[in-house]
């Protein structure tokens, strides 16, 4: 199925959980926050959150930046 992750199309297994997606992307869940279709998903719900085709995800973390 196709997802939109951080603005990019991405293929993931049908019915994959959020945990599975982060694994696939090799992202440490302890360093990110995830928004699924405009809703922030708590970390303890990653495992139980099944993704659907067309879901839009924002995966964010802390990046270099001071101001501006």
């Amino acid at each position: 199925m196709e997802l939109i992750v951080n603005g990019k199309r991405l293929e993931a297994a049908e019915g994959a959980s959020l945990t599975a997606l982060l694994n696939q992307l090799r992202i440490d869940p302890l360093r990110v926050a995830v928004q699924l279709n405009l809703e922030i998903i708590k970390r303890e719900r990653y495992e139980k959150t099944a993704l659907k085709a067309g879901d839009r995800l924002e995966i964010i973390s802390f990046m270099a930046g001071g101001a501006d």
């Binding site: 992750v5 951080n6 991405l10 995966i59 964010i60 973390s61 990046m63 270099a64 930046g65």
Partner: peptide, 9 residues
């Protein structure tokens, strides 16, 4: 201080 941004996939 750190910025909040999309992770690089």
């Amino acid at each position: 201080t750190v910025a909040v941004r999309r992770v690089n996939l």
